[in-house]
Computed example of a mutant assay.
Amino acid sequence: MHKKTQEDSFYDKVYEVARQIPLGRVTSYGAIANFLGTKGTSRMVGYAMGACSGLYPPVPAHRVVNRVGLLTGKHHFGSPTMMQQLLENEGVEVEDDKVKNFKKIFWDPNEELDYNKYQ
C-alpha cells in the first residue's frame, strides 16, 4: 500500500489546478507554484507534470509551459512533437517550440481560481 507523502499531496494540488486550464489556453509552472503559495517550486510543478501520465481524470500537462512559453516539457510526451500537436489541436499556435501570443492566451490561476479551494 502506498503511503501518502507530502510530495503526493503537492502533486495532487498541482493536478487540481492544471485540470482547470481551459482549452486553448496555457499557464506556466511558476504561475501554478505561485498560486499554491509555493513560489520557487516551479521545478517541482514540472516534475508533477512529468509524472501525471495515465491519471484519471486526465491532467492537461501540455497546457503548462515555461515562463516565456517554451515547450520545455515536450520530452514527456512520447514523441518530440506530441506536446505541440496537442496544443495546436486546441487552437494554440506554436512556432520553434514556443507558444505564439503567449501573453494573450496565458491563463493565470491567481486571477481565475479561488485559492481557498486548494488548501
Rank of each mutant, 00 (worst) to 15 (best):
R67I: 11
M49Q: 04
E90W: 05
P60H: 02
P58C: 09
T41C: 00
Q84L: 04
P57E: 00
R63S: 06
G37A: 00
V45E: 03
L70G: 08
N66S: 14
L71A: 03
K103C: 08
Q85W: 01
K74F: 00
L55F: 13
H76V: 09
H75W: 00
G54A: 14
N34A: 10
V64L: 11
K100N: 11
G91L: 12
V26T: 14
E88H: 11
T41K: 03
G78R: 11
K100W: 03
H62E: 11
C52Q: 05
H76Y: 13
V65H: 03
K100D: 06
V99N: 09
D97I: 05
V59Q: 08
D97T: 09
A31E: 09
G91S: 14
G69E: 10
R67D: 10
E90M: 13
M82E: 08
A31D: 13
T27E: 06
C52N: 10
G40P: 02
Q84T: 15
A61R: 13
S42H: 11
E93I: 13
L71C: 07
R67M: 11
N34D: 14
L87N: 01
G40T: 04
T41M: 07
C52E: 01
N34V: 06
L86W: 05
R63C: 03
V99P: 03
G78I: 12
M44Y: 10
G78D: 01
F35Y: 02
E88L: 12
K39M: 02
L70N: 10
V94I: 14
M82F: 04
K98T: 12
M44A: 15
T81N: 08
V92H: 04
K100S: 12
V94T: 12
E95A: 08
A33T: 01
S42A: 15
M83D: 01
M44W: 08
F77N: 04
L36Q: 02
G54I: 13
Q84F: 01
M49V: 04
R43L: 12
A48R: 03
S28I: 10
V64W: 05
T27G: 04
